[in-house]
Amino acid sequence: MLVASFFTGYAQAADKEVNVYSYRQPFLVEPLFDKFTEQTGIKVNVLFAKKGLAERLASEGEYSPADVILTVDISRLTNLVDKGLVQPIDIAEVDENIPAKYRDKENQWVGLTLRARGVYSSRDRVGRLPADFDYFDLADPQWKGRICTRSGKHPYNVSLVAAMIAEHGEAATKTWLEGLKANLARKPQGNDRAQVKAISEGLCDLSLGNSYYLGKMLNDESQKAWADAVYLNFPGQQAQGTHVNVSGVALAKYAPNKANAEQLIAFLTGDVAQHMYSEVNYEHPIKVGVQPSELVQSWGEFKIDSLPLPQIAAHYGDAIRLLDEVQFDL
């Protein structure tokens, strides 16, 4: 798998190649690309990065070699759209595989997997949360000093706040944020796994976290004890449903290997890749009819918030403003 050798000079089209810019980690996507190459004979060249892909695409302009962009969270996907760095994905197979609520309204990005924003609870001190537990309950005074979370400004939390605004309006969401902040056991910090670690150490009893992290921790000997100390709960089951975000894909605006890129995007929305995502990264497939891995299934079925993701993305600016107003991270 090439990492960066082709990412210099003028973007030349190649009959049997496709160039990918990826925020997704190598261990996750390389098996998918190997399978795609095996099936099609098309070589996948990948540039892996932790940040700066949008800026790189913008600076490269029409000379960019990028064909496909892989990333996570609708905020990053819509940022690519807002900066004019992508083009519509006009592939009938993709439209059939991915429901419209997980695609941009003009098909300028397409969701590939679902990532539920769950609530982890201490097995010993809390147990499983009630069936009617909702995100609003995180602001209940009974949890004062008992909740941990990463920064409110992290995209995963901004997305949740944006969904709350879309569902309940700004006033109710601001009140909720103020109550949630008052219940924090410590200043927001670390990542989702660090919050589960804090629960295992008795620093807090609840935490916000994406569902797939449970799978990652269970399969990491150094973190398995953290996972064994918590239950994963899906809020909103008797209300709007659990908030989900996506990992997604976009077609670069100046893709020099557009036909090959379209084949890759179609493959990523198909049965084989959808199941592989679940097996490797413990995410939920988006394509209807594709079963999650056995581990993911063991966490139980849950009602998903039906709000279309583009509608949530429209409130990202409002979410960040509210987080600033309540000084959530301070």
Rank of each mutant, 00 (worst) to 15 (best):
Y23I: 15
P26L: 11
F27C: 12
P31E: 08
K43G: 08
D67W: 01
I69E: 02
I74M: 12
R76C: 06
L80I: 08
G84R: 08
L85A: 11
V86M: 06
I98G: 01
V110I: 09
T113M: 01
R115N: 14
A116S: 11
G118H: 04
Y120M: 11
R123P: 01
V126I: 14
P130G: 09
F133Q: 03
F136E: 11
Q142A: 15
R146M: 09
I147P: 00
T149M: 12
K153W: 08
H154E: 13
S159D: 09
V161E: 02
A166Y: 00
G169W: 04
L177E: 01
L180R: 07
K181Y: 11
A182G: 08
N183C: 11
N183S: 12
L184R: 06
S211R: 02
G215H: 03
N219H: 14
Q223P: 06
F234L: 08
Q238L: 12
S247T: 10
K253E: 04
N257I: 05
N257V: 07
L264G: 02
L264M: 09
A266I: 07
Q274H: 13
Y277P: 02
E283C: 11
H284E: 12
K287Y: 04
I304G: 00
P310Y: 09
I312D: 00
H315W: 01
L323D: 00
E325G: 07
D329G: 13
